[in-house]
Design a protein around this nucleic acid. Sequence first.
DNA 1: AAATCGGGGCC
DNA 2: GGCCCAGATTT
Length: 389
Amino acid sequence: MRGKKASVCGGRSRKQEREIAPLIGSWFRSGARALPWRVLPKVGATRRDPYHALVAEAMLQQTQVSRVIEKYAAFVARFPTVLDLARADEQDVLAMWTGLGYYRRAQHLHAAARTIVDDFGGCVPSDVESLRSLKGVGRYTAGAIASLAFDEPAPIVDGNVARVLLRVHGKDAASDDADIQEWLWSTAQALAAATDHPGDVNEGLMELGATICVPAPSRPACERCPIAVACAARASRSQMEIPRPKTRGARAEVTCVALRVTRSDGAVLLVRRPARGMWANMWQVPTAEHAGLEVDLDASVQQLAQSLGVHIKRSRVAESFEFLATHRRMMFHVFRATDRGSARSVVSGPRHTDCSEPQSVARFVLLEQAAELPMSSPQRRIVLGSEAR
DNA sequence: AAATCGGGGCC
DNA sequence: GGCCCAGATTT
């Protein structure tokens, strides 16, 4: 049953894909945004540098273009070639990722660079299968690099493409549905096969989704859309209902008790998080995490101080703020203390705290050096102040 | 199939 | 206050 349905839809969509592919391609060439990763490597080049495409695609996963713009140029300047990235220290790669979130992407990109150097002679592969063998490169990213950097007729489906295609075909569905996903990929495949310029069509699809066919509750600018004539959602005025919103679970509530210990020279006591889980391998002030919001802050900070060898006479919350992530709501309560030598035992040698503690080794770090360490956004705020980025 | 993994912008 | 974003990997 599903096979028959798929073949019927596939036949119909291929015809429509032949109609809209050239419209999207020429629309994209006629005036797309000038984004840093769209700059061609040299005069006369027609395709982008594959390494730059790899970096950009890794950064752009689940991340808005405006946020990547702030980080992309500095990352490429720090690691100009795939060899530079392969040879870099992971802490430096992570540090350049600070603020972007999903930090595992940075570790995967780093590993991918090493694979490219070790197994592919330092050249980013052009075929989807080889690309997918790289860490952090899935179906979308492989298709994006193959098509955008090498003009291979490979399909891509991201949030933008899914929204555009579902609207054009008037499909009132949630884009994370498994059957819909397969339909999207086969439609995107037909689109890439229906043109001599798959790179422009694919990037045009995303550009369309990002600038014209925007998600609700924003209103799509159908009057400026190059494929409005072929759009079923526009015909039935159902743009705002497509795609159906995804269902998300409630955020887990977490209380974080952070202790910022300052030495007389201004250095701050930092610990590194474990290699697994959230903010893996990143630095922070000693912080205790508790499930829920009803936590005895005083008891928590006293225990934290004791585990560090820091004596606190009287504890008082210096600052509290909320940090929201997709699936967590974290309340940070920051305590401050001044070290008068009692924590020196912490400095003299690595000291491992209990396994249940969210951190391992503690050491004092001058603020100037701390600014170079990989830190999560809330911890960067605690260590460097809310102005620091 | 569901959970995990950030963070900010927008309405 | 909810939803989204140039997704991939693990369980």
